[in-house]
Simulated assay, not measured.
Amino acid sequence: MARARATSFSTTTLAIFILCMSLIGQSYGQLKQGFYSGRCGTNNVEQIIYGIVANAFETDKTIVAALLRMQFHDCAVRGCDASILLDVTGSEKTGPSNGSVRGYELIDAIKARLEQLCPGVVSCADIIVIATRVSVVLAQGKWYNVETGRRDGYISSAKEAESSLPSPKIPVSDAVKLFGHWGLSADDFVLLLGGGHTVGIIHCSKFLDRLYNYQNTGKEDPSMNKNTLWSFRQTCPKSGSNNFVFADQTPGSVLKVDNGYYKAITQGQGVLEIDQRIASHSLTMNTVNRLDYKVGDFDYQFGGAMVKLGRVGVLTGTQGQVRKNCRRNNY
């Protein structure tokens, strides 16, 4: 009973915090905090989204990783315009790189509720960003103030997704250059990779070569921790399987948005090749080490990187549309 009261108090306090923060008018270009204040009658858009995501989180804690992945995969292709949500011929979601993206039904549920309350007001692109922030907070991550005012794009292409999304085997220097093209720093890259992977899972097929045939040598990746190698081989046989492992190998850190990922990769427990390489590359290793040992740095800096990600290629003002259904264009 005491735990239930504590949970209720925490939820109520957070809801009040959402109400207060969504009325703030700080802006970045045409994006601003509290963009929807007064635009949905007396309804608080961010609080409504919080409630729906919180209900989903109660039954599926992995929705956090799903939404983080969705936001990144949306913003990486044509910018943060909800193009990943469209169900058109040859859409982004049909591309191989987006095969594991999920959470579409949750976005649909949020959109349907908001359309009941204030039709044609809240964009699908903003729903993704707000819902992702809510999930991060629910997974014990630090609160960050989202900017809103995005509009939705018209075009979604699997071909563009495949050419835009980075491979798990991308060299660190190429990844840093790619993020730089989006206006993001090397630190942002490390923060976003760690934030997404601290709550994620990775299927065996994505890293099987590191266990048995790294760079066609017939051996394991020598940078992998030996105990981790043994554990992964128990889960991922050489013949292949549909099994998965947690991207964050730090005990007690799984499904929490914290710095456990960095603690793992500094000990050779990275799952994907890119995970392990950022721990030793000159462009990223200092950031990884700092996020590992300096208490609180990740908590306070991850949100800032997410806000910067949310600015990539946005449509605002009269650009794009505000879809009535996130899966379909209005025309």
Rank of each mutant, 00 (worst) to 15 (best):
S8M: 06
S8W: 02
L14V: 06
I18N: 14
I18H: 12
C20E: 13
C20Y: 03
C20I: 06
M21K: 07
M21L: 07
S22D: 13
Y28G: 11
Q33M: 09
G38S: 08
Q47P: 00
G51Y: 01
N55P: 00
A56D: 08
F57C: 09
E58C: 02
T59K: 11
T59W: 01
T62R: 06
M70L: 12
Q71T: 03
H73W: 00
V77D: 14
D87R: 07
V88H: 09
S100E: 12
V101N: 13
A109N: 11
K111I: 01
K111R: 04
A112S: 14
E115L: 05
V122P: 08
C124S: 15
D126L: 00
D126W: 01
S135D: 08
G141Y: 01
W143I: 06
D152N: 03
Y154E: 14
S156Q: 07
L165F: 04
D188E: 09
V199I: 11
V199C: 11
I201W: 01
H203A: 07
C204W: 09
R210W: 03
Y212I: 03
Y214S: 10
Q215E: 15
D221L: 03
P222K: 01
S223V: 03
M224K: 07
N225R: 05
K226I: 01
N227T: 04
T228G: 09
S241L: 05
N242K: 05
N243L: 00
F246P: 02
A247E: 12
P251D: 08
S253P: 00
S253V: 00
K256L: 13
Y261A: 12
V271E: 13
L272K: 13
H281V: 03
L283N: 09
K294M: 12
G296T: 06
G296M: 03
G296V: 03
G310P: 05
V314E: 08
Q321I: 02
N325A: 09
N330L: 04
